Computed example of a mutant assay.
Amino acid sequence: MALSMRRTLVSLHRTCQSYKNVEVPLDLHHPVPFYLPVRTKKRYFIPPAVGLKGKKQWDPVAKARAAGIVIKQENMERPINIACTAGIFDPYIPPEGDARLSSLSKDGLKQRTEQLRQSASSQLAIRKIKEHDSTFTTKSFAEQAQEIFIEAHSALTDFNKEKLHSLVTERCYPEMTRGNRYKTIRWRFIESLEPPRVVHARCPDMVTKGNLYGQVTVRMHSKQTLAIYDRFGRLLLGSEEQPKDVLEYLVIERHLMNLYGRWRLHGKIVPSWAPAKDPIIKTVAIPGPEMEEPGQEFDPLNYEVPKPQAVQWYK
């Protein structure tokens, strides 16, 4: 037993001596480059394999939620403006034949009694408005509304955007300026045929219960002139010399909860029985004579301009 152990130790000693004498060459070249795989970034999204489109439903939101990624939800929202309302609450219905019927006639008396019957809710709204605006009175406000109307239309003719924004609401501004980019407007206020008066008042709230707005309808009967020219200077509508009697119902609004708010033009109420607007005057090209030769001169004295046929143009 001792002899076998001694022989094993001797063989191990000789093996170690042989390994010490081995020389390792330094210019050893590997036939294939050696790469060490290292994970640098975790892949949260793995594209689906080709051909699995109809086999399995793939939900990217669920995959992202499982990976811990929050995807922002895209909702079709639009911003709202609380400086003014989006429309006219409980609009005033003008009586048919207003400014034409006398108050002494039978129909005129019916209109007056109907107005007195509908003025109860207007009186409650006027009380609410006076709680937030101590200087509000129906007599002085009608004249103030007429001044706002005149200044707003004067700013429109001068294309003064800054002043127009301070006189009209954000809802009324695009309605007044739409389609006027390449046109010239000539408007003039001549006189007031009847003193303006307050005929309707409402005090609605929006968004919250205490967010109050005051809407006052003013009846204004005046004489005005309006002429609209296109970008070439041709007359499209109206006339600068011929005045017209205009009956309008203006809606003036103010954000009552805003301490720095002011009364601005919010819109107009057009009754159903109002006459139709004048058609736009469209210009057409008059066909000239056909020349037989390119160098032939045209003698205007011997040529009669053909009269165009009567065509009804619509706006």
Rank of each mutant, 00 (worst) to 15 (best):
I71K: 00
Y182N: 09
A155K: 05
P95W: 06
M257V: 02
D245G: 00
L12W: 12
P289M: 00
I281P: 03
S140N: 13
I93M: 10
R178Q: 12
V70F: 12
E77K: 15
I93L: 11
L116F: 06
G214D: 11
T15Q: 09
E74M: 06
S105H: 00
P308K: 08
I185G: 04
H266L: 04
I46E: 09
L124T: 13
R117T: 10
L237F: 13
A201C: 12
Q123S: 10
R264I: 01
G97M: 04
P275M: 03
M176L: 15
I148K: 01
F149S: 00
M76G: 05
A49L: 06
V198C: 07
R39G: 09
A310D: 12
P195Q: 04
Q118Y: 02
P60D: 04
Y213F: 14
A49R: 08
L3D: 02
R39Q: 13
K315Y: 11
K72P: 05
D245N: 14
L226I: 10
F298S: 05
N21S: 10
N211L: 03
S102N: 02
M1V: 14
V32S: 01
D245W: 01
P294C: 12
L236P: 11
F189A: 13
K55Y: 13
Q118F: 03
A49Q: 08
E131P: 03
W263C: 09
C16P: 01
I150N: 13
N211C: 02
D278S: 06
A83D: 08
V70R: 14
A49F: 08
Y173P: 00
L52G: 03
K268R: 10
K72W: 07
H255P: 10
T217K: 01
R254C: 08
T283G: 14
K41D: 09
S4V: 08
K130P: 07
N21L: 06
T177M: 00
K72Y: 09
R127M: 11
W58H: 15
Q144L: 07
L104W: 07
P37N: 05
V284H: 10
A86Q: 14
Q312S: 09
V284D: 13
K268D: 09
N258Q: 04
H266G: 04
R254K: 15
T135C: 04
Q242H: 05
Y303L: 12
N211F: 11
A310S: 13
P33L: 01
S154Y: 12
P287Y: 06
G87C: 02
E23G: 04
D278I: 02
T225W: 01
T225E: 03
T135A: 11
I228K: 10
R219W: 15
T177I: 12
S192W: 02
S272V: 12
Y182R: 03
E131R: 15
A152G: 03
V251I: 14
R188C: 06
N160S: 10
H13V: 07
T177H: 00
T217L: 08
L235C: 11
K282P: 05
I148T: 05
Q17L: 10
R178E: 06
E131T: 07
L235E: 10
E96G: 14
E304F: 01
A276R: 06
I148D: 01
D299V: 03
W58G: 01
I148R: 00
Q118E: 09
